[in-house]
Structures are given as C-alpha cells and as structure tokens.
C-alpha cells in the first residue's frame, strides 16, 4: 500500500520555513456530546473530546480537533486510521447505551503543512483574517478558516510558534506556493 500512496505535494518544490507532514491519519467523528453513552464509548478509545469550540486535545503525534458542536477530527500517525476506526466501531457496537455515531476515515481528504518559522504569525496574517495574537490564538487552538482564500484547518502546536495547516489535496500545491512566496528569505 505504502508505495501506492502519493502525496499531493510530491514533486512540488517547498521553500524554507515549512514542510509537508504527509499521510497523517484523520478520522472524522460525529456524535451528540450530550449523549453520554456514545461520548463515553468514544472517549474510552481516543481520550476526552475537546468541547470548547476551536480547541485541540493532544499534540504532534495524536490529537483531537474540535470542528463543530457535534464534530471532531482525530489526527494520528500515518497508517493508524484503519485500526483506530475498527477499535472505535467495536467499542461503540459494544456500548448498548450509545446513540448514533458517525466514524469516517478522511485521511486522504487533507494533507498537512507544518509552518515552523519565527515570523509565522506575520506570514499567516498576510492571508488569514483570524486574530493570531497569543492572547487570542495560542497552542492547542484550531480554526477552520481561509488562508489565502483556501479553506484550511489551522492548528497551533506550540509557542515557537509552529502551525499546522490541513488543506485539501487540490489546494495543497497552491497553498505551498503561496507560503513559499510569503516567507521572507
């Protein structure tokens, strides 16, 4: 399988200051957070879901991103999606008090750019209307928004600041070129 995978940025020359983190596992979770049976079953597998809008639980290797009032994105290392999906399905099937839950492997839906640059805030601010000031947007925050008019999930990892931009494959090369152009030499 691994040799059949092809990143949308394969062959695209990336500038300094950012890199692609390809093939991250991504599972889209939909459930009613008030449904304690479903939430308990899911949380026994992936850990507590972030209930505060635009926040993340976890970090580099494994994380859960809030995408909506009843929607989360579970991000993990490449190749872990199938196992995690099966584990979630088995746990929910065994939980008799769980209401409806949707579990979709969306790993191929987005690739990830990791921007690690001392001027990352200013670079992103050139194409993004989110307030990225540390007071408003720090580590453990995420937002679905537009960067250079391309839809992304923007996710701040640490204070460096390091950002991840999860972008759809068809916009990935464009966004990479925009970043290459936006990052000062």
């Amino acid at each position: 399988m691994a040799e059949l995978r092809r990143s949308p940025l394969e062959g695209v020359a990336l500038g300094d200051g950012f890199r692609e983190v390809p093939f991250l596992s991504q599972i889209d979770l939909r459930l009613n957070p008030a449904d304690e049976g479903a939430r308990g079953a899911v949380e026994s597998v992936v850990g507590p879901l972030p209930l505060v809008p635009n926040t993340v639980h976890g970090g580099h290797d494994a994380a859960i991103l809030w995408l909506g009032p009843d929607e989360w994105l579970v991000v993990g290392p490449p190749g872990s999606a199938a196992d995690l999906e099966r584990q979630l399905r088995d746990t929910i099937a065994a939980a008799t008090d769980a209401g409806p839950v949707a579990i979709v492997d969306v790993s191929a839906n987005r690739t990830t750019l990791e921007l690690d640059h001392p001027d990352a805030r200013a670079i992103l601010a050139g194409g993004c209307s989110i307030d990225l000031h540390p007071r408003a947007f720090g580590p453990g925050r995420c937002a679905q928004t537009l960067v250079a008019r391309a839809g992304v999930i923007l996710w701040q990892l640490d204070d460096a600041p390091t950002y991840r931009l999860l972008v759809r494959p068809s916009f990935a090369a464009y966004l990479a070129e925009w970043l290459t152009d936006a990052i000062p030499d």
Binding site: P53, N54, G68, P69, S129, I130, A143, Q144, T145, L146, R149
Partner: peptide, 10 residues
C-alpha cells in the same frame, strides 16, 4: 454562534 467572530467571506 459556535466559532466566534469571523470575516464575512467565510
């Protein structure tokens, strides 16, 4: 109501 203040283009 979920995400807070955002730009009109979103």
């Amino acid at each position: 109501p979920h995400c807070g203040p955002r730009d009109e283009v979103e």
